[in-house]
Nucleic acid binder design. Structure first.
Length: 272
DNA sequence: AGTGCGACCCGAACGC
DNA sequence: TGCGTTCGGGTCGCAC
C-alpha cells in the first residue's frame, strides 16, 4: 500500500488519534523491525508522548519530546488503533500502549518495515531522511531539476521515478500512472527525456498524488489499508493492475512487462 | 558513479 | 482438492 499518498493518509488519521497521550508500555514481538537498541527504544518511549506526526517521502516521523521515531512501512506495514484488551493477532509486531487503554499496533505481514529512534538534533545527519529527493509538491521541483538529474542516467525512466533521491514518494503504482498520464514509455532512457516531458511528469505527479490523497490512497489485493480505512484510488487507476484491459484513451490492450525487476503496466499505443 | 540483482519475509494467486 | 511455484505496493548491500 504505502506510497506518498498512503503514508500521508496514515499520518493524518494517526494525528487525530494518538497525539498527546502518555505512553504506558511498549511490547516488541518481532525485534528486527527496530533498528535502535531495544532497551533504549522502550526506555525513551515509555512515559513519553507523541507531540506531532510529520512525513518525508514515504517516511513517517513521529515527534516525541526530545526524539523522533522514524517509521517506514515498506511493502505492507500498517498501523492500527485497538483497545489494549484486544488479543494480539498474527503479524502485530510492535505494541505501543497508551494510558487510556488504547494501543497503537504496528502490523506487517512481510516484516519489511523499519523503525528507528533518533535524537532531534540528529535529524540533519540522518541519512534515511536527508537523502530523500524533492517531494512532488515542492516548488523547487522544476523541470530543470529533473532534466539535470536524468541527464546522465541510461536506466529506464520508470526505474528513475522509483529513485527516492530524485523525486521522493512515488512507488510502483503511481510511477506507472504518472508515465501513462505523461504519455512516456516506461522503458525510455531517463537521459532521453525532454524538458517538456520532465514538466509533464511533475504536473501529473501532482495531479495523481493529490487525487490519491483525496481518495485516501489505493487499496489493492482486496485488503484494508492502515487503520482499517480503505483507500479508493484503485478505482481511478488507468494502467496499474489492468493487464489486457482496454486503454481508456485508445482501446488498446494494456501491457504488463518487467522494468528493473518491477512489474510495469502501460499502453504501447499511447506511450511510444 | 552508475547499474543490476539477490536478499529480506510471508501469503495469495497461479499452474498442474 | 492438493501441492509446488511464482509473485509482490520497497529498499538495501554488494559486485561489476
Amino acid at each position: 500500500m504505502p506510497e506518498l499518498a498512503e503514508v500521508e493518509t496514515v499520518k493524518n488519521i494517526l494525528k487525530e488519534k494518538i497525539l498527546n497521550k502518555k505512553i504506558k508500555s511498549v511490547e516488541i514481538i518481532y525485534s528486527k523491525i527496530i533498528e535502535s537498541d531495544l532497551d533504549e527504544f522502550k526506555k525513551i518511549l515509555i512515559n513519553n508522548e507523541f507531540i506531532d506526526i510529520k512525513r518525508k517521502g514515504k517516511w513517517l516521523i513521529f515527534e516525541l519530546k526530545d526524539h523522533y521515531l522514524l517509521s517506514h512501512l515498506r511493502m505492507e506495514g500498517k498501523y492500527f488503533i485497538k483497545n489494549s484488551n484486544d488479543p494480539i493477532i498474527k503479524h502485530e509486531h510492535i505494541i505501543i500502549s497508551f494510558n487510556d487503554n488504547t494501543d497503537l499496533r504496528y502490523h506487517d505481514t512481510r516484516k519489511f518495515g523499519r523503525m528507528k529512534l533518533i535524537k532531534k538534533e540528529d535529524l540533519p545527519n540522518t541519512i534515511e531522511i536527508q537523502k530523500q529527493g524533492k517531494e512532488p509538491f515542492d516548488e523547487t521541483l522544476t523541470k530543470e531539476y529533473l532534466f539535470d538529474k536524468f541527464k546522465n542516467k541510461r536506466i529506464p525512466i520508470k526505474t528513475s521515478l522509483l529513485d527516492q533521491e530524485i523525486i521522493s514518494g512515488l512507488g510502483n503504482i503511481y510511477a506507472d500512472e504518472v508515465l501513462f498520464a505523461s504519455k512516456i514509455n516506461p522503458l525510455k532512457e531517463a537521459k532521453e527525456l525532454t524538458l517538456e516531458e520532465c514538466q509533464n511528469i511533475i504536473i501529473n505527479s501532482q495531479k495523481i498524488i493529490s487525487k490519491a490523497i483525496e481518495m485516501g490512497g489505493t487499496t489493492i489485493r482486496s485488503y484494508t489499508s492502515s487503520l482499517g480505512v480503505k483507500g479508493q484510488y484503485q478505482n481511478y487507476l488507468k494502467v496499474h493492475k489492468r493487464e489486457n484491459m482496454p486503454c481508456e484513451k485508445c482501446g488498446n490492450k494494456i501491457k504488463k512487462i518487467k522494468v528493473g525487476g518491477r512489474s510495469t503496466y502501460f499502453c504501447d499505443q499511447c506511450q511510444k
